[in-house]
Design a protein around this nucleic acid. Structure first.
Ligand code: FES
Ligand code: FES
Lengths: 136, 136
DNA sequence: GTATATTCCTACTATTCAGATAGGAATATA
DNA sequence: TATATTCCTATCTGAATAGTAGGAATATAC
């Protein structure tokens, strides 16, 4: 229950890899072989990370990916959301209008609270905590 | 991300239905029609709730399901776990031995912390909060 | 003791989604 | 021009979720 996708776990490893390079860039192939991630799958992951502004890329020869910003400024929430979208225990959690049960939905506040609890935890932790290992 | 199964949502509605009966019993068919849940699907849900000791059942004519205990003693965690098992952001979260990354897994403590945060929230809330609507 | 209402059990189907793979177009460097 | 790279699109596969179907077991009522 509440399991995290392989994609997100890969993304965290990829970001941790880039974080350790301190601004230098790495190619997708570098990351894939170092982290044991299927290259073609990783490409899709890096593409999403780029869309969310967490990495920037350069193509052509000598191209690669570079982390944006400092590790302590990259929240785990940002990485998770870049992969699988925002936390939504129920699909209608952030728009009451789309609630099937409408005004009569008793668990609504409960779900909103759950989302808040998860978001808060993910937002309190940064890539730095991961890279440094036992900060959590 | 982190969405809850239809099964769990159905289970909550079914439990809320039973909670409002204050110890009286209802048949699966009653609950199904009142809550708009497919009967045959609901039967499987009630079976799991029974396995976890959240409801008890009586079969044959005049049979049905009855909630065990008071609504404030039924944690939401119990319901969620009865449906989809324990909270596991990563499958190895509760046995370091099964960790693919082993001792070298940097995010491990982070995942354990996430599980704790979710478990705590779910455990702090009871069926009573749901039935009463805006306690959350 | 027969009809009926119910839980309970097993198996099946359909749909969706995650994970992965494949091939190649666009682009930058040497 | 050759090469290394990102980037784009399409496809395949396996597993899980949601739902369906049929009937066996069991308790009650008449
Ligand atoms: S129907 Fe939207 S939260 Fe319940
Ligand atoms: S491999 Fe088990 S927590 Fe990372």
């Amino acid at each position: 229950m509440f399991s995290v996708s392989a994609r997100t776990q890969y993304a965290i490893r990829a970001m941790a890899h880039l974080a350790r390079l301190e601004g230098k860039s790495a190619t997708a192939a570098d990351i894939a072989s170092a982290q044991g991630i299927p290259l073609k799958y990783l490409e899709g992951i890096l593409s999403r990370l780029k869309l969310s502004g967490l990495v920037e890329s350069e193509r052509g020869k000598n191209g690669g990916y570079r982390m944006q910003g400092r590790a302590q400024d990259v929240s785990m929430l940002a990485i998770v959301e870049a992969m699988d979208g925002s936390v939504k225990p129920v699909s209608c959690v952030d728009s009451a209008a789309s609630c099937a049960q409408g005004r009569a939905c008793l668990p609504r506040k409960f779900w909103i609270g759950l989302k808040s609890a998860i978001d808060a935890y993910l937002n309190e932790h940064s890539l730095k905590d991961i890279v440094e290992g036992d900060q959590v």
